[in-house]
């Protein structure tokens, strides 16, 4: 079972990101589960969303998981506690404008962890026209996880977004591919 935990702020599209990943994986014949922990919070409040992916039906309906990937789509959340319930092999993919050295200096808790950085905020602003870091994060995940070939994944996402104007679809596809190329 593959498990992912998203750290986001309400309104940044983590739930949409979770659903998009579910969609793509389900069309590959996998069993998927996506959920988030809602509060009564307003836009901007920190929130978590989760993905489970497996070959078999997923029947666990608890929120407990030790994620394989922690996806951080808001740069400021690295300063909060995002290190609970992790395992030794947990990989972090973090949206930030900082370099690895700068991040380790700013947040010593990342020392010894496997971290990958990509600036999804900047990428989405430049490619989509607004700060929607969710789809580029999925591009970065494809690179780090090797779950799909990037062209296959971008193609699936393009189909998924069919209801949107062509400009938005193209922007998302570009953002996904750029994050794939830029994540380090």
């Amino acid at each position: 079972m593959l498990e992912l935990r998203w750290h986001s702020r309400a309104g940044q599209g983590a739930v949409t990101g979770v659903k998009a990943l579910c969609d793509v994986m389900a069309h590959e014949g996998k069993h998927v589960q996506g959920f988030s922990v809602y509060g009564a919070e307003k836009r901007g409040a920190p929130m978590n969303a989760f993905n489970r992916v497996d070959e078999n039906p997923i029947i666990d309906h608890s929120k407990a998981m030790k994620p394989d990937y922690v996806l951080v789509i808001d740069p400021s959340l690295v300063y909060t506690d995002i290190h609970y319930d992790i395992k030794e092999t947990t990989k972090y993919i973090i949206t930030t404008h900082l370099s690895k050295e700068e991040l380790l200096e700013a947040v010593p808790a990342f020392a010894g962890k496997e971290i990958y950085l990509v600036d999804c905020i900047k990428i989405s602003q430049e490619e989509i026209g607004r700060a929607m870091p969710n789809t580029p994060m999925l591009g970065a995940l494809m690179k780090v996880s090797g779950l799909f070939e990037i062209d296959d994944f971008a193609g699936s996402m393009e189909k998924l977004l069919y209801k949107f104007p062509q400009k938005i679809i193209d922007g998302n596809v570009k953002a996904i591919k750029r994050a794939y190329a830029e994540v380090k």
Binding site: C22, H31, Y38, I58, H61
Partner: peptide
Amino acid sequence: QDGFLVSHTTEA
């Protein structure tokens, strides 16, 4: 159905 645990949980 259970609120959120089913209602807001995406599955195939």
